[in-house]
Design a protein around this nucleic acid. Structure first.
Lengths: 178, 178
DNA sequence: GCAACCTCTTGATTGTCGCTCAAGAAGTCG
DNA sequence: CGACTTCTTGAGCGACAATCAAGAGGTTGC
């Protein structure tokens, strides 16, 4: 097989690079994850990586987008009638793997419009989910928007700060009891 | 005056550099704030800056430490008996100027022990303040730790996310009503 | 007065980083 | 077969944080 014409479809190659990036981002954090390292992990040179992704930020966005897709797929498959506490716990648990990326997402959102859009989408979709649940719960509609912000910030806070499991559970319980 | 012996005390020079750093960090964000830029702003060369501060991270830590000092000085001078809502509003207001640094603080805390310590100190001091207030309020002591976490995360969340003023106020009101 | 020492400043440089560009390889199509 | 397309890479660039040796000037002790 010619060295410059592998029998790998472009989208498969993209996915391989994205997967390598996710691994390196998770292990090393965004700043320490050099493009050279990611490329090596994916079995290409850095220049080839730039054929598939415009920039390191674009690669990061692709990783985040994939993770978000999986996350919301999982969240939306849960029973909408389950207790809020269970949902919140699942949300926090479901995002544990992505913890190293949460802060970076906020950092990058300040300078990259595509990432900012992803961040906003995350909040919008989470808000929509929560709103559905809270309406079912007959919470005073006037309180819902503020509560959704609070819940979202607490979720993010739990992901950005290392708490003992018991403390984390207590926060979730307290939040769900609001 | 000899060019290498300015009549400026070392601590004054440190403060000048720190002040320049704060300005550039605020305006450009940490990543875009190059050491060369900061040095220029302070009227020294980058090498001189390294005489006073070990690294860019150390400079960042010094800026954060100064800001934290000022913040808690202000917070502790408030009437402890005032309504929680007023305190929370003041906290969020008092940290507006430092907003650009909040996310970076979390990002750097992941890799720099001194900054992690600063971050922990911030939370510890805020928790102590809030605990005093909540005890006065006769909140169920079993709820206080979790509530303090919630309040802290919401404060940080408000600083990391651009909300309209009305929405922000609603969040603060809802939080204070817990 | 002089040498040793100290504080501070800077020219020069380094290695790493994200990224670009030109060139080449190989397949496809008219 | 030439033009075009897709993909890969060697070579290189500018920016960055940071280091180091050298120099300037003040201080101190003999």
């Amino acid at each position: 097989m010619p060295s410059n014409r592998p029998d790998v479809a472009p989208e498969v190659k993209r996915q391989e690079i994205r997967s390598a990036a996710r691994t390196v981002f998770f292990n090393d954090g965004f700043d320490k994850a050099s493009v050279a390292r990611i490329a090596r992990e994916a079995g290409v040179t850095p220049n080839t990586l730039y054929w598939y992704f415009d920039s390191k930020d674009a690669l990061f966005a692709a990783v985040v987008e994939e993770l978000m897709g999986l996350f919301f797929l999982g969240l939306k498959s849960r029973d909408p009638a389950e207790p809020l506490e269970d949902t919140l716990r699942w949300v926090v648990q479901g995002m544990q793997a992505a913890r190293p990326l949460i802060v970076t997402l906020h950092e990058k959102a300040k300078t990259s419009a595509p990432i900012a859009a992803l961040h906003e989408r995350f909040h919008a979709e989470l808000a929509e989910l929560l709103e559905g649940m809270l309406s079912e719960r007959a919470m005073d509609p006037a309180r819902i928007p503020a509560f959704i912000h609070i819940a979202s910030f607490v979720v993010e806070g739990l992901l950005m700060h290392e708490l003992p499991t018991a403390a984390r559970d207590a926060v979730i319980r307290e939040l769900a009891a609001f």
